[in-house]
Structures are given as C-alpha cells and as structure tokens.
C-alpha cells in the first residue's frame, strides 16, 4: 500500500505506477485508450486523463485489495505542468512527445504544428530519445511563485539531437557538464492551492 501523505499525492501516484510495473501487472488495458495497435501514441492524452480502471479479475488477487488501492492512487492526478510534452508508455516509463516532419524528417520538441524546416503541416507524433548529455545547467534560487526553489535547470542534448530544457534531479554537487542523463518524472512545484505539480526531469541511472 502506498501511503499518500497530504500534499504528496503525485509522488505517491508515481510510486504506484512503478510498483505496478515492478509487480509485472499487465497494464495494457489502461493504455488502450492511449496507444494504438502499433504502440504509437493515439492522441496526446495527459496522465490525468488516463482514468480507465483495471478490471479486478486481471489483477493478482489479494486479501485486502491493496493493488486496487494502489491503482486508485495511481489514477489520482499526477498533474504535469505541461501535459502535452510527456506521456508514459506501456511499461510506465516516461517519453517526451515530439514531432517528426513527414516531409523532411526534422524532429521538433514540443511537437510542432508546422515544420520550422520546410513549412509542412504533416507532422507525426513520435517519442523522443530518453538519453542525453548535459550541455549546461544552473541552480536557480529566484523564480516566480509555484516553483520549489532552489532547483537545477539544464539543457540536455538528446541522443536524437533535440535539445531539451528540464529540471535536473541530481544532487547539486554531483551535477557536471557533459554528464549522461536519462528521462524521469518528478515533482517540481505546486499550484496556487498547494497541490503538487510534476514534470519530466533528467536524472542519473
């Protein structure tokens, strides 16, 4: 059972997803509204809209229905500040949602509506690489309301040559330019009512 301390629901929800993954739970039923038969993202749904409950019969049965409780926790909002930019795949791992121009193959992040290379509007939605190198970073101490300060912000050059701005989830003294990082999810702030807000982050293995 994943306990959610008040104000920490989104951390609990992420933990619940990871527990389900590690427990080998088949979560394809959850994902059927999100992914088509080829595993491509059907539409840009945020995690908050993935609400399909798992049928009890498909779950390993327990006495206390703890997994159902975990699923309830997992269905609770992991509220992404920019839900159009990130999604979870069938195994629960996060992917950045990018675009690829059908005409010239140029990648875009966020997914572009029109290609900045050739003006085509034929843009496929594609997951971007999850690994990258840190180009530069800064630990930010002064920011608008809502951010948990201080936070480390960095530019990551992904393996497919897109550059992404992200929070770096690494102890400050261990951050170094050119270090390899991979994609994750983390709580980065709170909205005006204090509810946590998450985003994609980059972290070490």
């Amino acid at each position: 059972m994943v306990r959610a301390a008040s104000g920490d629901v989104s951390r609990a929800a992420v933990q619940a997803w990871l527990l389900l993954r590690d427990a080998g739970v088949d979560r394809r039923k959850i994902m059927r509204d999100v992914f088509d038969e080829d595993g491509k993202i059907r539409s840009r749904l945020s995690m908050t809209t993935v609400q399909t409950p798992i049928e009890k019969e498909s779950l390993p049965m327990t006495e206390t229905n703890t997994l159902v409780s975990n699923q309830a926790a997992a269905n609770a909002d992991v509220r992404f500040i920019t839900p159009d930019l990130v999604a979870l795949d069938a195994t629960g791992a996060p992917h950045l949602i990018g675009g690829r121009c059908r005409n010239c193959q140029a990648l875009s992040f966020p997914r572009a509506a029109v290609c900045a290379g050739c003006l085509s509007e034929e843009i496929e939605t594609v997951p971007l690489a999850c690994e990258g190198t840190l180009y530069s970073y800064s630990v930010v101490h002064q920011a608008p309301k809502g951010w948990i300060v201080p936070y480390a912000l960095g530019y990551i050059d992904l393996a497919d040559n897109v550059r992404v701005l992200a929070h770096i989830d690494v102890a400050q003294e261990k951050i170094a330019i050119d270090m390899p990082l991979h994609l994750a999810v983390g709580v980065v702030g709170a909205d005006s009512s204090g509810a946590p807000l998450s985003s994609y982050t980059f972290t070490t293995a």
């Binding site: 920019t82 930019l85 966020p110 530069s136 800064s138 920011a143 608008p144 530019y155 701005l165 330019i177």
Partner: peptide, 23 residues
Amino acid sequence: DWEVNQGMVMPALYAMRARRYMH
C-alpha cells in the same frame, strides 16, 4: 513559451551561458 513553463527565467539562461563559457 514552453521553456518558461519548465521554469526558465532570464538569469538562468545567462547563468547557463556563463557555466558553459567557463567550462
């Protein structure tokens, strides 16, 4: 601006330039 929504502020942008230049 999508970077602003990820927490970009002007001092951070210049700080990253500085960090890379120093490197």
